[in-house]
Simulated assay, not measured.
Amino acid sequence: MPIIAVTCGEPAGIGPEISLKAAWEMRARVQTVLIGNAALLSQLAAQIDPSMCVAAVDRQALELPENQISVIDVALDADVVRGRLDARNGRFVLQTLDIAIEGALQHRFDAIVTAPLQKSTINDCGIPFTGHTEYLAEKTATPQVVMMLAGGTPRPLRVALATTHLPLKDVPAAITFDSLMRTITIIHHDLQAKFGLPHPRILAAGLNPHAGENGYLGREEIDIIAPALAAARNKGIDVSGPYPADTLFQPKYLENADCVLAMYHDQGLPVLKHASFGRGVNITLGLPIIRTSVDHGTALDIAAKGLGHADHGSMIEAIKLAASMAAASAHSQA
């Protein structure tokens, strides 16, 4: 079975609860190692289900007991009150990430899954932090990563982004020939190497309404996007477009597609989240390791209500996909 490390995220949010529930539910299929505070997780496990057994394990030896939830223990800097942030625990959250990244780079973990964290808490403890994705890229010395979300049934919809968390006014300048070429190349490579798709097909959206309507509604499609797609095709990548985004997300286009490349965050993700919210998975492409995550935030309001209100469906899907990607990656390297 694959060994998947799960960072439990912000301790005052729903991350610890959904991590425990998912690890317990998946224990017969995946060897899940939670990275968090063992005492906190043990306390929560006893309240969630008295049959849950939590066992602390050594981060180097990783001797994983059967029918128990393995935990790599990380010390908290402050007591946890569910639903209430405490900046003193910002360093704790980063330490769980560091342990997961180190273990994945050293091949002790086959993949990592991240529960949601609170960016403000980490910044408030004096550490500049913009997000999981950027931190993973920095720690693995990866020059460019690509954000992809996946979900929906029966055929999963995958949406990758050419730009991510930018104000809309800054998006056009961020879309360049070179950046699009790098993005498309990363998507193509990881669909092959980490998803086991030998001949992936990518559909690219335009930037402007009606994909620019032959230049009347903008020239980015003519001057940048179409030339980049043509250059990618010349490298043997099956990418087509640019298509008008308002008509692209139809079954007749998607039924033979493996991924849609959207030009900005709110162009592609509303469709994906409508199809799969609560069961969607966030994937970071381009890294030397496999990383998936849930499709939601820390949900402090839900955590404050007490245990039993958090839905762990997205965490289940994130662990499943991480295990599937680990198997595909091992097969491609064999």
Rank of each mutant, 00 (worst) to 15 (best):
I237P: 02
G13C: 11
L20T: 10
A173D: 15
G278C: 12
E255F: 06
T153H: 13
V159N: 11
D295E: 07
T176Q: 12
P198Y: 04
P143C: 06
Q250P: 00
E102W: 10
H210M: 13
V80N: 03
V159W: 09
N37K: 13
G280S: 12
I237W: 04
A61C: 07
N123F: 04
S240C: 04
A160P: 13
A330F: 02
H331N: 08
G218P: 04
Q192W: 01
Q60S: 10
A245T: 06
C53P: 00
N123P: 03
V54M: 09
Q144P: 00
T163N: 11
D77E: 15
H132I: 08
T7E: 03
P143D: 04
L85N: 06
A12N: 08
H331Y: 07
T163V: 13
T292W: 02
P198W: 06
G83W: 13
D58K: 06
L217T: 04
Y135G: 01
P143Y: 08
G313D: 02
L248S: 10
I3N: 02
T163L: 12
G13S: 10
A28D: 15
L20S: 06
F249Q: 08
Q60P: 00
M148V: 05
V239M: 07
L20I: 14
G215P: 02
L76Q: 05
Q60G: 00
R82I: 01
A318M: 03
R155P: 00
A39C: 04
T183A: 08
L20A: 06
L229I: 15
A141E: 11
V30D: 01
Q106Y: 02
T164I: 15
P128R: 03
A162V: 12
E255N: 13
T298W: 11
V80E: 02
H210K: 11
E63F: 01
A56F: 00
L203S: 05
L287P: 01
G306F: 13
G215A: 02
